[in-house]
Design a protein around this nucleic acid. Structure first.
Lengths: 355, 355
DNA sequence: TATTAGCACTCGGTCTTTTAGAGTGCTAAT
DNA sequence: ATTAGCACTCTAAAAGACCGAGTGCTAATA
């Protein structure tokens, strides 16, 4: 069977009506809603076809129809094509001036949730692949060294090292020189255990201390490549706005996922991998890799701050979410973030991160 | 009217039964449950008295009675008195060895939630009042300085400073000297704007740069005294276990509070202020300063890591929570935390924090 | 005087029945 | 190909019936 123009119109009308009301849509409604001027009987026939084709289903015999995931997919794909590239300045998105990146991100995610009435998530930009710019050891106390690593994007990592034996200033100087010569310009990913053991040998003298120091650095790096991604969420309570998500069974699982951020982190990671042309990704129901979101749709976008720093923003809502609005909002936020943080000399960029 | 022994016994029976079932308790139940050997009629008379005294109420005419906040308060106070000081080793509390403080805290809060079946919260230890141990400026790029501040408790704060003009090594050295002389040994709270403007004058030369640097430091400190307390929560979904909290109205508000951590931060702060003898605090219903927890009870405990570093752990649950178990768990966690982190040379302590 | 048995009464919860209405599928007419 | 009409289905909501837990009161009892 062919999905001709009329069927498409009808299907669209069904989807849009359902997005608004959340109630199954009947033939009579469509007959009035569209400008097709068809009687409900005709619509019924078409609907019967559409059901056969798997685009809509009846929750029960004598109810109207609701869209299936397949229908949503069609709808979203068309939306994406239309590329309403008009990134309208979301004027409600007035970011209060703060210097603290973290605060800004929290605000952004809050705004996003408030603006859409869905749940919003945001992963802080991660700086995997950024180059080491500066390494420094300094003495804090007789047997305590502070190790600071600055990487591209002005991210600062630091770590305190407790030593078993003393070390004098000259040795520290030497070590600093060595570290900078060997590691500068490398990405954290490139500084692997092999390289580190190389440097250990090279250091020779005081290998004990060097070893300790390098182990610490290795650990910092490992912590980096690990999945300790910062994720902020907001508007979890919005799920209660949508009865189909609000039953305690489902809500409980969702809340749990949102609270224990690690599942979200995995999600974000995989979302960053399946890049799309316009950077926006839509997961409808089962398409999402997260079990607890089987009844939701998730729309994500990746934002970039230059320097290869990337993060992800996402909206989690019912399948009948207002995809158009959500995608527009995400685009706006994406643009805004790049705008605010993209500029190298912006003070907000000089914010440091913890180790 | 007097709250005599028999009334107390009956009230206790009511509370304990209600804690278990969550259903209003009738006279007949009590008549069987207690070893008083009284008929339901007698119990009814007593219950009528207890109601008049404000300890129990009927949700509706023909229902049993449920305890009021006043009754819970009585019950809890007695529990506290009994001081079951036997901090039993919560053997399920096997903290996996990790070096990252943050990870440990997250695990602790998760365990606490799992162990009690309520919602748990935990504030990371804050180091207000700790003394500056070490300050260092170093050049990262021609017009970029890295400012590192280490305070007692081995907390590292750092901040990058972008300069408008160049600065040479000698000047940096001088500044370092100045900063350490003037600020070492002071608490972050003591380094106020007045002192900073003093130092600014003292520096004299290159006041432009010094000014910039000091402003940055001032900002770091301000950020500290600000309420940017780290708070972890777990088991928010547990509220769905208790029907009296699970209606979407209430759940929504609770979830929202748990997600936007700032209200919790205020709570924690005030909880740290009203210290009790045994360090455990119980807020029943309206006693809690947080609006959305009017239908909950909250039990908090303050833990200390020496060095004056303090944090708070808390349990949020229904008023009919198992106070005894909760308090025991909190005590155990409190002890465990001090144990794990209290030791100065423990590697976990050398963890740094972000600025 | 304190306790208890007994009884009428209340009222929320559950289960069943009824009803209204939305929607369908099918058929016959256009 | 479209539509009007009709019988049929099924849900949600309303209405009623009923149960039972629980109470308050009174009169009997120890």
């Amino acid at each position: 069977m062919e999905l001709d123009a009329r069927k498409t119109t009808i299907l669209n009308a069904i989807i849009e009506t359902y997005l608004k009301t959340g109630e199954p849509v009947g033939s009579r409604t469509i007959s009035k809603y569209t400008d097709l001027n068809l009687s409900s009987a005709t619509i019924r026939n078409e609907m019967s076809d559409l059901e056969e084709m798997g685009f809509i289903i009846q929750p029960h015999t004598s109810a109207g129809r609701i869209p299936t995931d397949k229908a949503y997919r069609l709808y979203v794909d068309r939306l994406v094509e239309e590329r309403t590239e008009q990134v309208t300045a979301m004027n409600s998105l007035m970011i209060a001036k703060t210097n603290r990146m973290e605060e800004i991100l929290k605000q952004v995610v809050r705004l996003l949730a408030a603006n859409t009435n869905y749940t919003a998530m945001l992963s802080a930009p991660s700086y995997k692949g950024n180059k080491v710019k500066f390494i420094q050891l300094s003495r804090v106390a007789p047997r305590q060294l502070l190790n600071v690593v600055v990487v591209d994007g002005n991210i600062v990592k630091n770590h305190l090292i407790d030593l078993k034996e003393d070390i004098d200033d000259e040795q520290i100087l030497k070590l600093n020189l060595l570290l900078n010569t060997r590691f500068n310009g490398l990405t954290l990913g490139e500084i692997n255990l092999g390289l580190i053991s190389n440097v250990k040998e090279e250091a020779g003298i005081h290998s004990e201390i060097v070893s300790e120091v390098l182990d610490t650095i290795a650990e910092v790096i490992r912590a980096e490549t690990d999945e300790n991604m910062q994720i902020y969420t907001s508007g979890a309570n919005n799920i209660f706005r949508y009865p189909e998500l609000a039953d305690s069974e489902n809500a409980s699982r969702l809340i749990s996922t949102l609270e224990e951020k690690d599942v979200l982190a995995d999600f974000v990671k995989s979302a960053e991998e399946d890049e799309t042309s316009n950077g926006i990704q839509v997961y409808i129901g089962d398409e999402s890799p997260v079990e607890s979101m089987k009844d939701c749709s998730v729309v994500t976008a990746t934002y970039e701050l230059g320097d290869g720093m990337k993060g992800t923003i996402g909206i989690i809502g019912p399948k009948r979410m207002d995809y158009e609005h959500v995608m527009k909002s995400l685009k706006t936020v994406k643009a805004t973030l790049s705008d605010v943080f993209g500029n190298k000399t912006d003070p907000a960029r000089t914010e440091s991160e913890d180790s």
